[in-house]
């Protein structure tokens, strides 16, 4: 019971880095661009945000600084892939390695320092409920992320901008022939994805676990990329996937509190193993992927 209560209380916060990074990548992929540099962009955002908070800059500037630095990194990716038609997979890896390197480079003097996180905001009445009460006692970023998820769902499915993004991702040549600036839209989508990855990293290093350690993103950026596939490029499903991974990453700690003798390394591996298994299940449904997949994903746009 305590374990369930623990997971319910913590899973939204644990899910937030996955959610923000995955929603950013979702927008980039919907425009037809596969940016595999999410892990590196998250790490850079995390490092810059941590340094900002540690040196007294405060959390709001930290999130902005982390987001912007990751966005600048994503613009390098955009320049190479959208401007010059460089291979998206390889360029994404390059940007990922660069981001991880930069985060370790700038974060070196701050290794294993800590900062204070931010206070939680409880929803009166609901937060006192037994068992599920913890679910309604979260920090402001979690609440804003939930609002953001709904807003993004609305923009992508109910507005012209969302439709435009879809057109660019499904058939860039048709979109261009009716006068839409395909490349500009793609650069914008990639930059948005970069910013969100940076913000996700900032949340991880200054709120969720407010400390800096080299390698602290630990594959969460890659899981975010996988989440976009799990969610078959749909906001709602990506949200559910992020929740699942939030719960899974807490599951390890919960199991230890219960006192089961499972090696901690197995529990640490759990999110990665779950990713592999779920990826297998979702991907084997080829029809699902074909129906929801982005037709021009990963293809360079050339006239």
């Amino acid at each position: 019971m305590i374990a369930i209560e623990f997971i319910l209380a913590g899973m939204l916060a644990a899910a937030t880095p996955f959610l923000l990074a995955a929603l950013g990548e979702l927008v980039a992929e919907r425009s037809g661009v596969l940016n595999l540099g999410v892990e590196g962009m998250m790490a850079l955002g995390a490092a810059i945000a941590f340094i900002t908070v540690y040196t007294g800059g405060g959390h709001v500037p930290a999130f902005i600084a982390g987001g912007i630095c990751a966005m600048i990194l994503s613009l390098f990716f955009a320049f190479a892939t959208i401007g010059l038609h460089a291979n998206q997979v390889a360029t994404g890896l390059a940007v990922g390695i660069l981001g991880l390197g930069l985060s370790a480079y700038f974060g070196k003097p701050f290794e294993s320092f800590t900062v204070t996180g931010i206070d939680k905001i409880a929803i009166l009445g609901l937060a006192e409920l037994p068992l599920v009460g913890g679910l309604f006692n979260q920090d402001i970023v979690v609440w804003l992320s939930l609002l953001f998820t709904v807003a993004l769902w609305y923009v992508l499915t109910r507005t012209k901008l969302g439709l435009l993004l879809k057109a660019v991702g499904e058939n860039p040549h048709a979109a261009e022939s009716i006068g839409y600036p395909v490349r500009l839209i793609r650069v914008g989508a990639v930059a948005f994805g970069g910013f969100m990855a940076g913000v996700a990293g900032a949340y991880a290093s200054t709120v969720y676990t407010p400390l800096w350690a080299d390698g602290m993103i630990a594959g969460r950026g890659w899981i975010a990329v996988a989440l976009v596939v799990f969610g078959t490029w749909m906001v709602g499903r990506v949200f559910l996937g992020a929740l699942l991974f939030g719960a899974v990453s807490l599951g390890g700690i919960a199991v230890q509190t219960v006192g089961l003798a499972i090696p901690s390394q197995l529990l640490t591996s759990l999110p990665y193993i779950v990713t592999i298994v779920v990826l297998g299940i979702i991907s084997s449904n080829k029809r699902l992927l074909r129906l929801n997949g982005i037709a021009s994903l990963g293809e360079p746009f050339e006239k």
């Binding site: 590196g40 390098f76 320049f79 190479a80 010059l84 038609h85 460089a86 291979n87 390889a90 360029t91 890896l93 390059a94 940007v95 990922g96 390695i97 660069l98 981001g99 991880l100 390197g101 930069l102 370790a104 480079y105 070196k108 080299d214």
Partner: peptide, 25 residues
């Protein structure tokens, strides 16, 4: 800092991928 090697590796690959786009264009 030793991470400078990783930064160098990442920028080297990025620069190379940009450079080879001019092989065909």
């Amino acid at each position: 800092p030793i991470a400078a090697v990783n930064v160098f590796q990442g920028s080297l690959l990025l620069a190379y991928l940009i450079a080879i786009t001019f092989v065909r264009r």
